[in-house]
Each structure stands twice: as C-alpha cells, then as structure tokens.
Design a protein around this nucleic acid. Structure first.
Lengths: 93, 93
DNA sequence: TCTATTGTTCGGTATTTGTGAACAATAGAA
DNA sequence: TTCTATTGTTCACAAATACCGAACAATAGA
C-alpha cells in the first residue's frame, strides 16, 4: 500500500501497464508529465520491486521492468485495478 | 490514497467500519493493537477528514467519526473494499 | 581499451511525521 | 457561577523519511 500511495510510483505503474514489453528508467521518465533525476527514479523502482509490485530484469545495459499482474491479482484480487481506476479519475487521461 | 496508505489510518478506518455508531479518538485508541498519544490520533483523524474519507461530528465533549461509505463508493467504486480486503489479508483478523 | 549509456549507492539536505505540553471546548457537580 | 473531569486541537521541536547530486558499477560497441 505504501508503495502504491506515492503519486510518482502510481504513475510509473500506470505507464508500465500500458507498455507490453516493459520500460526502463529513462523511458519511464520520458513518458511522465514531470521529470526527476535518475537516482530518484531508481529509488522508486527499488521500492516497487521490494514490495513485489514489479519485476525487473537486466537487458544489456538497461533494466526492464514489468508489473507482476498475475501475482498481484491472485494475492490481492481487484486491488491494483481499483487503485489505478481511482488514480485515473483524479488525474485525467 | 495517501490517507489510506498509512497502517495506523487504515486500522482506524477498519475499526470505524465495524462500529455502526461511529467512534471517538479515545475509543479508537483502545481498540487498536498499538497505542498512541492523543495528539497523534487527532492528526490521523484530521488527515482522514480532510481527504474526505470520514466525517466527524461533535457530540458533547467528544468527536464521533464515521466512514463516508456512500460518498466514497460513488466516487471510487470498490476502492475502499479492495484496500480493506488486502489489509485484512496481510494483518490477520 | 576507450567511450557512451543505464542504473545504483552514498552522503547531505530538505521535507514530512510523531509527540509532549499548553490550550480550547463541553458537561456535570459543587 | 466556579471547579473539575474529559475529549480533542494546536504548536514547536525531535525523529524519521524522501529527494537529489556526485561518484561508482555494469554492460555494449567502436
């Protein structure tokens, strides 16, 4: 819950869900409306990773991350969808 | 989201949902597994109130609070239920 | 080996949160 | 009324957390 409560992190998760093949930090930063240094981006990814929301995998020089949809849905059915739905309702799109 | 991400506040909301007639700070503190000073409790209630999750009303010397179920469900359908369900799954009961 | 690119770690700073003490508000008894 | 007990809020400071730049690590390609 703490991991998903931060506005930056929920934005990241929303972008990751739209990208089938996953995203890395630089790509993510480019798609968000606000910018942030890469160290901050790295921290947010670490929190998302350690809380089990995303899975990251090294591909050459970059780290590609994806949302762990199956694991999340089986453990907390409907939770991520409800949160993302609420977030979209507040933040347009 | 921020209001509901704190473990103390989600516990308070869970207790409020169980109590039909609402609860005040002192009663709430007594029902939770951990204790906290009343100033802290007051702050958490304020955050829940300002984020629109609860409604508080003075009854004599005490402030009785209730979850705004209808308003929340119409604005964010299923959100509170999903979050509370996930919380219970993690924190027993 | 050298360079470019991506991401992590570390340390200091800034922001946020928790807490005790003082204060405000109300009710009831003296 | 005045005094006391109870509940909750506000304020200021301490503690915890988050942000960010700089240095470092890892990988790929020239």
């Amino acid at each position: 819950m703490h991991a998903l409560s931060d506005p930056v992190r929920i934005s990241i998760v929303a972008e990751l869900r739209k990208a089938e093949e996953g995203l890395n930090c630089v790509e993510t930063t480019g798609r968000l409306k606000f910018s942030m240094p890469k160290s901050t981006c790295s921290q947010h990814y670490r929190i998302l990773r350690e809380s089990g929301i995303i899975h990251s995998e090294r591909r050459g020089v970059e780290m590609t991350s994806k949302v762990r949809r199956k694991e999340l849905d089986s453990r907390f059915p409907g939770l991520l969808d409800a949160i993302l739905k609420a977030w979209r309702r507040e933040h347009g799109e």
